[in-house]
Design a protein around this nucleic acid. Sequence first.
RNA 1: CGGGGCGUGGCGCAGUCUGGUAGCGCGCCUGCUUUGGGAGCAGGAAGCCGGGGGUUCGAAUCCCUCCGCCCCGACCA
Length: 587
Amino acid sequence: MWPGVCRPAAAASTTPMRWSQLFIPTLRDAPADAEVVSHKLLLRAGYVRQLAAGFYCYLYLAKRSINKIEAIIREEMNAIGAQEIFLPEVHPAEIWQESGRWDAIGDDMFRFKDRFGRDLCLGMTEEEVVTWLARGEMRSYKQLPQIWYQIQAKFRDEPRPKSGLMRVRRFTMKDSYSFDIDAAGLDVSYNKHYDAYCRIFSRCGLEYLAIEAHSGAMGGSESHEFVVPSDAGEDRVVECAASGYAANLEKAVAQAPAPTEPDPEGDAAPAELATPNQKTIAEVAAFDGLPETHHIKTLVLVADGQPVMALLRGDRQLNETKLASLLGANEIRPAHPEELRQWLGADAGSLGPVGAPKSMRIVADTALEGRKNLVAGANKTGFHLRNVTPGRDFAAEFVDIREVEEGDLDIESGQPVRLRKCIEVGHIFKLGYKYSQSMDLRVSGDEGKEVTPIMGSYGIGVERILTAAIEQNHDEAGMAMPAAIAPFEVVVTPINWKTDEQREAAETLYASLLEAGVDALLDDRAERAGVKFNDADLAGIPFRVVVGKKVTEGLVELAVRSTRQSSDVKIEEVVGLLREKLAAAKA
RNA sequence: CGGGGCGUGGCGCAGUCUGGUAGCGCGCCUGCUUUGGGAGCAGGAAGCCGGGGGUUCGAAUCCCUCCGCCCCGACCA
């Protein structure tokens, strides 16, 4: 009854790696609700199943792949002297209240109460916990620097989970935290992470970019994101091949092309122009016959309760992130129509800086600096003003608040930049003193005085590496996983399991692969060849050794998943050849 | 949270408009044949049609309501 019992004894020790015994539920058709490639393939290849929106079960293949990713991360983290720890995923509200994030974060945090009514949350990240830990135990500058890391589940109550494992509510993160005595020390810890991250993503077989990033709600100064270019990504990255500049669109800077025509000459005072029902820049430009670049786009926003006027050249878009960081605002929203009428006496579409209340802060994009005789709203519904000259007719702070667009010119090289969608796989932050200060972490310094350590925090999304690897390596047949993170390195596929020579040769070959340290799988199913080939291709196993008729001549076939090339190889040479190919693929 | 779509065996879908007690393909199980890219034949198992309420002699189908999932947007370390 038990198949294993009547099999040759040699096979008994490795039973779990026989395909016939594994639970790999491959699907011929992709479930209808999967949209992006990696999501479809993860489902079809039997890697994952969804439990609920944003919550996934990782089946055997996914788990093996994730284990390999984690092993690479551990090796590289250990190599920079980071110490692995493991923290609770449930946190008491108190520590988050101390840092101020209990209130700052909002609905993204899963919160609940225990039986006694105490407030708890599921960890989204663990700055508070490590700071609490350090505060209790760290006494002296002599104990610094420290780098602690863990690989742990993280929870975020995403408003819209999507795209398979790309944006989920429970995921695995490698998060690390550094404590240093001063900024120079933080630079060292930060750079160690930067280098380790480069090695990790390379070893995982990803084509990635390290880009300048916005530090967002994390606080802190410098920040880099590690991203993988892919259309399935959600981050937009500005890149200049000539200079090597790369930055998240949220903070990217570039030079906007010059206005399409020179500014009109003359120094006439602003003059009213009736523009009935002409609201958008495009409408007004069509109406007055001037190019969009000769118009001032006026946006009124409310930043943490304070009204702010943002001015842009007509053809440009506001970058809210830039504006928010300039203002130091947590929350920014467009002003309501009633507010506009109250503050400026006009409706959206006719707003402008001339005659705006003195109390209103006005921020103008640098692309408006030095311009003259432009068109702006008159703060009178249905009217605009001609001959508006910044500096003369209104005062403003000139700051770069515009969003970079494809084709804008790189600051350094002057070459056009390009915009690419990317998947964020890692992010590193110089936190500064945000947590050590708010949570009273101090150690004694070398002169006996207390010193506040400076911190950094560093994250890697483990499942995002898997997702990005699939997005970057697939074809019609399925995944073509990088060897370093594929669930198995090699699959041995006998064409006809009932043929004694093929079965025995496959068993022997499989055993010697295992002995040689190759992570191999034996496809011992009584399926037809096509089924086995298709499943192996779907699952993305990098190398396949086919044991067919030619085995009687001492030949097997070696197929490479990524190139879909195959060739006959002498059976006694396969193991050595595979070891070479694997070493090369994982280098 | 706004807009759109979908919920019928494991997967993909039809049936809903026009009410009559559920069907197709793939997969699964058994047997025989077959065996180098998702085999053929024969037989078989499997669905309270997302939940609740209502209308009706009768509801997958009509009405009300709730829930879930996907997509676009908002949001997002």
